[in-house]
Write a protein that binds this DNA or RNA. Sequence first.
DNA 1: TGTTAAGCTCATTTATATAGGAGCTACTCA
DNA 2: TGAGTAGCTCCTATATAAATGAGCTTAACA
Lengths: 118, 118
Amino acid sequence: MRKLTSTNYYNQTFLEEKCTLNELINLLSKRWLTEVMFSIEEGNNRFSTLKEDLKHISDNILADRLKLLEQHKLIIRNDNFREVPSRVEYTLSETGSKLSELLDGLCHFSETEMEFPE
Amino acid sequence: MRKLTSTNYYNQTFLEEKCTLNELINLLSKRWLTEVMFSIEEGNNRFSTLKEDLKHISDNILADRLKLLEQHKLIIRNDNFREVPSRVEYTLSETGSKLSELLDGLCHFSETEMEFPE
DNA sequence: TGTTAAGCTCATTTATATAGGAGCTACTCA
DNA sequence: TGAGTAGCTCCTATATAAATGAGCTTAACA
C-alpha cells in the first residue's frame, strides 16, 4: 500500500532506474536483512534458530526479510519436510554467497578506512 | 532530535555496534548520498552544479548529504574563496575514492547477478 | 533603494519503515 | 478436550526520513 503519486516515490524510482546500485542499497538497508543473511550462512537455517540468534528481531520483520531475500534469490527456502509442527529450512544461494563476499569487503573497508563521528 | 528510548533506536545501535558494516550501509542508504558522491567525482564540485546535475534533489537534502559526506571525510569542502556571492567547492577525499571503487564493484554485481522482482 | 546570486538553515507536512501483539494452522501427545 | 509447537499473517501504533517552502547573508551593481 505504497503511495504511487508522491515525490518520495517518484524520486526513489528515478534513482533506481538511474542505477541498480540504488536498488541493491535500498534492499541492503532494510534493518536486519544482512544479519539474517549472515546468520543463515553460519548455519542458522530455521525461523526459530534465526530468531534466537538475532535476539531483538521481531517475528514479522524476520518473516518479511526472509521473504525479501527469497524473492531476490539470495536464499533458498525448503519446506518439503511434511512435519508437524511445520519445518522450513533456508540456505544461501550462489548469488547470496557472492553478495556475502562483497559485503565482507565493504565491512573491512568500513572498519579500517571509515570514520564515524559520534 | 531523535528519540533515544525507542526500540527502533535501540535496535539500530545494537546492529551498528555489532558490525560497522551496518553503520556504513545506513549512511549509504540515505537517499541521493551516493549520487552526490559520484557527481562530485565527475567534476560537479559546487552546490549549484550538483543541484542541476541531480535534477530532483531539494536544497535541504543536498545540504544535508554534503554535510554527512564531509563529516565522514568522504569529501573535502573548500570555502577559501572570499567571493560574493559565496563560492564553495567540494572534492572527493582518498577514502571517498576508495569507497567509490568498492561501490562500482557492488554496482557491477547488482547489474549482472541480481534479480529485482517488479 | 532594490535586486540578484550562492549556499545554505529552519519549521512544517507528508510518507514510509519498524515494532508490538493477537491470531491462525494442523497435527500430536497428555 | 485442551495444550503445545513452528512458522508465519494481519492490524495498529510509533518513530524516522524525505520534501516543501520561506528566509538569511553579504556585497556588488542598476
